[in-house]
Amino acid sequence: MAETAPKTEAFEPRIVAFLCHWCTYTGADLAGTTRQQYPPNIRVVHLMCSGAVDVVYVLKALMDGADGVLIGGCHPGDCHYESGNYKARRRVAILRNILGQLGIPEDRIWLRWISASEGKKFAETVTEMTEAIRAMGPCEFKQHWDV
């Protein structure tokens, strides 16, 4: 297990990113190889398709202490599995309805279409999201369930 982060005053958001193998994960690779810097607050989970991101995984990430969740998939029409990204879109729409009931602001969950050639967009998205979540402060969901 990693060394635990020292307790500091400043809040550092923790973001889990579920990335589809073919587009956004490859875009993240390109962000790396083209040396686009972005905040170190993100932890990447590699999946074959954004359509394979279970709502439970998102909730689990939040319950484990994530402050935000990014789901990255192929642009509409580009899914390697025909319609996985549309399934992800519908699933996220449903998830947003549930989040309110759980007291989680829905904009802690971001769904973005980022292609294999959009390394810059990936880096920008992570930067933008980190700042947005930082402004929102820590997600209290984990605390609520820490009984």
């Binding site: 060394e3 790396g32 686009q36 810097q37 905040p39 170190p40 993100i42 932890r43």
Partner: peptide, 13 residues
């Protein structure tokens, strides 16, 4: 490499 170190994530990531 790509997901952690190139982007500046460091040892922790």
């Amino acid at each position: 490499r790509e997901a952690c170190l190139e982007a500046g994530g460091g040892t922790r990531a």
